[in-house]
């Protein structure tokens, strides 16, 4: 694990320079974990050699994101195949996740046939429970009507599709920040959803672990590319008193993480195509990489919660 810690100034196992470079790590076949504020990483090869599953925990779930079914451009001409590989990886996990979270952009163009393909391919997944939030690609022409009809059957969704649920003492909140976007702005939650959120967490003890998931990052990653949510500060304000808040997002097709107080922000890889690091390209459009490198830049995120531990362990693995 120490292989990748090159600057440990405070002798706490945290390589801050390496932490900032986690973008680069996403492409190098690493599993990485932040638990209790301590960053650790292991290569997939190391995990394989150890031959053991990750430690048993009280709750293990998996985040999958940005499948973009229907996309067929150079960055990945077969996104259905890479989505299938991701599902195969889930099926091969020694300890299956309790459920999945899909953080949006199920489809490329919100077409019924794209949703159909997703549903058809998904049938091969052993883990059947999935909690969805929409991406902007899922609500393109109908404001999310079709998405809501298909993917909110197992939850009590409010408004344009937000909801919460509890699992093993963890409170999960699925938010929608891709609708009614304003000219010149970023992702947006809106007053109605924010009021619901304030009310939703009101009765919870401060020791309840909170997991928030939404498509567009709920922290300002790179506003020039619209990678942020204009009113996320207000949402986070309602969560400030909680001892453990994990925020899971998609949208930017790469792993980025930030820890701020008790809040861990994390973005997942896509299963379809990578996007450039913030500001490194003329636009955030699909990034073409050599074919042999593509799967190393696609992936899944596993999240584990153990009772008594404040922070949840968030571990990314790629599809190579």
């Amino acid at each position: 694990m120490s292989d990748y810690i090159s600057h440990d100034h405070e002798h706490d196992g945290i390589d801050r320079r390496g932490f900032l470079q986690c973008m680069a790590w996403a492409g190098t076949g690493l599993l990485w974990t932040i638990s209790g504020g301590v960053l650790v990483s292991r290569t997939l090869a190391q995990i394989a050699k150890a031959g053991a599953p990750l430690p048993a925990t009280d709750l293990s779930f998996l985040q999958i994101s940005d499948s973009h079914i229907g996309f067929n451009k150079d960055a990945n001409k077969d996104v259905t195949a890479t989505f299938q590989i991701a599902l195969d990886r889930i099926n091969a996990m020694p300890t299956p996740p309790a459920f999945l979270i899909h953080t949006g952009d199920i489809t490329q163009l919100s077409k019924p046939e794209e949703f159909d393909t997703f549903d058809q391919v998904f049938k091969s997944c052993r883990t059947k429970d999935v909690f969805y939030v929409p991406g902007e690609h899922d609500v393109l022409n109908d404001g999310g009507k079709l998405y809501r009809e298909r993917y909110l059957k197992s939850v009590e969704a409010k408004g344009s599709g937000w909801y919460s649920f509890n699992k093993n003492g963890v409170h999960f909140i699925g938010l929608v920040n891709v609708l009614d976007l304003q000219a010149g702005g970023l992702g947006q939650l809106g007053d109605e959803q924010l009021e619901w959120l304030e009310d939703d967490v009101k009765g919870l003890g401060a020791d309840t672990p909170i997991v928030v998931f939404a498509h567009i990052p709920l922290w300002t990653v790179y506003p020039d590319w619209g990678w942020g949510t204009s009113d996320s500060e207000r949402a986070l304000g309602y969560l400030k008193r909680f001892g453990s808040v994990t925020v899971l997002n998609g949208h930017i097709h790469q792993v980025l993480q930030k820890v701020e107080g008790n809040v861990t922000f994390h973005t997942a890889m896509s299963t379809a195509f990578p996007q450039p690091a913030p500001g490194t390209a003329p636009s955030p459009g699909p990034m073409k990489v050599p074919a042999e490198k593509l799967r190393s830049m696609l992936g899944l995120t596993s999240v584990q919660y153990k009772q008594g531990k404040t922070a949840l362990a968030v571990v990314d693995s790629n599809l190579s």
Partner: peptide, 30 residues
């Protein structure tokens, strides 16, 4: 509607004036 690659959208300009528009998928685009 959402324009995929190489798709077009055409309107005919009406009364004189200034009309601002944006991309509702990527609202930074104005």
């Amino acid at each position: 509607t959402a324009l995929d690659t190489d798709q077009e959208f055409t309107i005919t300009a009406g009364a004189p004036g200034t009309y601002t528009y944006f991309c509702s998928v990527h609202p930074k685009m104005t």
